[in-house]
């Protein structure tokens, strides 16, 4: 099942073609991944543990490279020469916000990326304020990150990458460890953003809620690509890739807010 990619613009946000990669210890994680994400799309990347999801994500901003194939972000190839620009365009939100928020205060943390890119003074201030306002954390700018709740830290983590005005936002397990209210707040924030989103998740209802399209990464290749609801309803496919819906959840009967 290869659905037509709904491209809303001429240059897709992300183009991965034939990407293969083996770690130095010989373990091969990716075996030729092809994936295109159009501008403004929200795509869920599903797959069992060990499918190569994290390896793929680390290729998107050039932390891992050296295998076969290519990655392009908004037409720009990911390679050593334009690494700085690529890292500005691809905003990765890691799973543990404590890893991501390494500066002493929320404000400095959000400012880190833009400041590393050369922004200073009032312009930097404005950029930080805007990113914090987008996630509803403007009131917490001067707090140290470890005094925030987990949900708040996750939102600040999103702000740290939004401040760099990325072309594509990559979220690694955005809903993990969140209480239902924080989960919904984050969903509202993600929906309100005008940015391409690639969301790596095991949380299938969350994928259905936020992403029209899903891709399944299994065994180091894209095994399926299609509308999220169709994928979730295909029981055989789900079983084949160790994907399971939560008890009592029926994707057919859920109205998805758009």
């Amino acid at each position: 099942m290869t659905s037509a990619v709904p491209c809303t613009s001429a240059v897709p946000s992300l183009e991965v073609s034939g990407l293969a990669f083996a770690y130095p210890d010989g373990h091969q994680a990716l075996f030729g991944v092809d994936l295109t994400v159009g501008r403004g799309e929200r795509v869920a990347l599903l797959g069992p543990n060990g499918a190569g999801k994290t390896t793929l994500v680390l290729h998107l901003n050039g932390i891992l490279d050296g295998g076969a194939g290519s990655v392009r972000v908004a037409g720009l190839p990911v390679d050593k020469r334009n690494l700085a620009e690529i890292r500005r365009r691809v905003g990765i939100v890691f799973q543990d916000p404590d890893d991501q928020l390494f500066m002493p205060t929320v404000r400095e943390d959000v400012a880190f990326g833009p400041a590393a890119a050369g922004l200073r003074g009032a312009e930097l201030e404005r950029c930080v304020d805007k990113a914090l306002a987008q996630v509803g954390m403007a009131a917490f700018a001067d707090r140290p990150p470890h005094h925030l709740s987990f949900g708040q830290r996750r939102r600040v983590a999103v702000a740290t990458v939004l401040a760099m005005e990325p072309e594509i936002l990559v979220l690694d397990e955005p809903s993990s460890n969140l209480d239902p209210a924080s989960r919904r707040e984050l969903a509202d924030i993600l929906r309100s953003l005008d940015v391409t989103v690639l969301m790596v998740t095991h949380d299938l209802p969350y994928a259905l809620e936020l992403c029209e399209r899903s891709v399944v990464l299994s065994g180091g290749v894209i095994a399926e690509d299609g509308p999220t609801r169709e994928l979730l309803c295909d029981e055989e496919l789900m079983r084949a890739h160790r994907l399971e819906l939560p008890f009592g959840f029926d994707p057919r009967s859920v109205a998805v807010p758009r």
Binding site: L58, R87, F112, A115
Partner: peptide
């Protein structure tokens, strides 16, 4: 990794 992803290249930007 998180730092490198946000453009860290060995020096902290002066904020």
């Amino acid at each position: 990794l998180a730092m490198v992803s946000r453009g860290y290249a060995g020096t902290m930007p002066v904020i």
